[in-house]
Design a protein around this nucleic acid. Structure first.
Lengths: 205, 205
DNA sequence: ATTACTAACATACGAGTAA
DNA sequence: TTTACTCGTATGTTAGTAA
């Protein structure tokens, strides 16, 4: 409909024509149109002389959502890398990363013993998800000590500033806001890359 | 998948996760993924440790087609008007439009007696379809004379240059290329709008 | 010509489960 | 844990028609 009438135009047709257009039967076209009306996507009047229909705001919204998602894909082909701004950490990272239960798995699965501390990066949430999901997930299992239990962690290998091997780690139950990620590496990243307070840093998959 | 991995990234996941994402069962997700592979849309490897998939060119093409169609909708909200370039007609129009069998119906259905001649406009085919489909169709029935038969004509009322009432006419079996439309009006349009050989003209719905 | 109802048929779905 | 098979059930489709 939108293709024919632009977004707001009135669509004059018949269920038979719509059916032919979609490669389905007249009955199915009729039913589908009524379902769309039922769902509040379109306005639809039918009579023995044909149908008269128009997209409603809800219907346009559906199309627009699709458009925006596709636009992000085709209008910005830059999702194999991710930029972030370093954030002053709270020092918690060091505590977790240094736990023997995790450390042994890091060495085995990631191939390096992490520096006892994490680099926190503020990133675009959607871009980060896109970026992360493109990297094979490595599971670091949780464990218990006498004092408490530690949850599992998902890890994703990355290359930092094109040089240093490291990994994004995502604790199972993270306390971070979702626009923040934690990066570990064998070296002290802040020092190695001479990062100032809010320095930018680039990760590649 | 594309949303997660960009267009070309490798997608590591499980059928259960895909299922949750789509709001369907693990079994359906598994089946749908295999169907997509079958159709050549994606590359898919599955194992007891999960799935590994990637969009193939055919799959990306499908997304891109959708993107381009939606882009046309949202990136150019100008489909209630149509521009065309006047083309030197062959004079056939006059013969058809003046036929009594059509003329009576034009007067009754369009509200004017057409000038004996048509203005041929060269237009963008897709835009023209879009434009035309948004206008209620008026059917001018065909008829027979002693000599020959005349086919039916679809007519769509338009406003020419914002001033003159007229109509686009689409003969049932047209000999025109599909990027050309015929316009009729009560007056001689070329004269009224001082159209030169290749002058531009604007129609509104 | 229309739309759209009913009913018979086809397809899709998902619970259970094997590997 | 996985994937993906079978199979009973739910949903979707369309031929035949009424209005």
């Amino acid at each position: 409909m939108a293709k024919r009438t632009s977004l707001h135009g009135m669509f004059y047709s018949s269920t038979a024509k719509v059916a032919q257009l979609l490669g389905i039967s007249q009955q199915s076209a009729s039913r589908k149109l009524r379902e769309m009306r039922q769902k509040g996507l379109i306005e639809l009047q039918s009579s023995p002389s044909g149908i008269k229909a128009r997209l409603l705001d809800k219907g346009i919204k559906v199309l627009k959502q699709d458009y925006l998602e596709l636009k992000q894909l085709f209008a910005s082909p830059k999702s194999r890398q991710l930029s972030g701004r370093a954030k002053t950490g709270l020092g918690e990272g060091s505590y977790y990363v240094s736990q023997k239960g995790y450390e042994k798995q890091f060495v085995k699965s990631l191939g390096f013993r992490p520096f006892p501390g994490t680099l926190n990066l503020v990133v675009d949430e959607a871009l980060a998800q896109s970026f992360i999901a493109g990297i094979p997930e490595i599971e670091i299992r949780g464990f218990r000590t006498e004092k408490r239990s530690f949850g599992s962690i998902r890890a994703f290998k990355v290359l930092i500033e094109g040089k240093e091997h490291g990994a994004i780690i995502v604790p199972e139950r993270s306390s971070h806001p979702s626009n923040e990620i934690e990066v570990i590496a064998p070296s002290w990243l802040r020092k190695k890359f001479r990062l100032k307070e809010e320095g930018k840093i680039k990760l590649t998959a």
